[in-house]
Amino acid sequence: MNAFTYEEQELMSIYDPGTREGLIANLEEMRGYLEPDEDELRELTDSALEKLRGISDAEYEQLELMPDFED
């Protein structure tokens, strides 16, 4: 499994509905609203999507996608 970066995990925790397919759908939808100058967020989203598509639902279930609001 490709390891997700801290930034990818934080992004995924915001859009995670509880299923891998749902998370992919939410990230794809959010990506459609990005402005042309939001290259960094687009790249982060694309990287997370690529990794999510490459893992199984069982591997997704092992991810701890809890937002860290203490930072």
Rank of each mutant, 00 (worst) to 15 (best):
M1G: 10
N2T: 14
F4K: 01
F4R: 01
T5W: 12
Y6Q: 15
E7H: 08
E8G: 01
E8R: 03
E8Y: 07
E8F: 02
Q9G: 01
E10M: 14
E10F: 10
L11T: 03
L11I: 02
M12D: 04
M12A: 13
S13M: 06
I14E: 13
Y15D: 06
D16C: 14
D16L: 01
P17T: 01
P17A: 02
P17L: 03
G18P: 03
G18E: 06
T19A: 09
R20W: 03
R20P: 02
G22Y: 12
G22F: 08
L23Y: 06
L23W: 08
L23K: 09
L23R: 09
I24W: 05
I24S: 04
I24T: 03
A25V: 00
A25R: 11
N26V: 01
N26K: 13
N26F: 03
L27R: 06
L27S: 02
L27Q: 04
E28P: 00
E28A: 04
E28S: 10
E29V: 08
E29N: 12
E29Q: 13
R31Q: 15
R31A: 14
R31C: 05
R31D: 06
R31L: 12
G32L: 05
G32H: 06
Y33A: 13
L34C: 06
L34V: 01
L34A: 09
E35R: 14
E35F: 13
P36D: 15
P36G: 10
D37Q: 13
D37N: 13
D37P: 00
E38F: 11
E38Y: 09
D39P: 01
D39L: 15
D39I: 15
D39A: 15
E40M: 05
E40L: 06
L41R: 14
R42S: 11
R42K: 14
R42P: 00
R42Q: 08
R42H: 08
E43W: 01
L44K: 05
T45I: 15
D46K: 11
D46W: 04
A48Q: 01
A48W: 05
L49P: 05
L49D: 08
E50S: 06
E50C: 00
E50P: 00
L52A: 05
L52R: 04
L52W: 09
L52C: 06
R53I: 01
R53Q: 15
R53V: 04
R53M: 12
G54I: 03
G54M: 04
I55S: 04
I55K: 10
S56Y: 10
S56N: 09
S56V: 06
A58Q: 15
E59N: 12
E59Y: 09
E59Q: 15
E59S: 15
Y60D: 07
Y60T: 08
E61L: 12
Q62V: 11
Q62F: 08
L63Y: 11
L63V: 05
E64D: 10
E64G: 00
L65R: 04
M66V: 15
M66N: 13
P67S: 11
P67W: 11
P67F: 08
F69Y: 13
E70C: 00
E70K: 01
D71R: 10
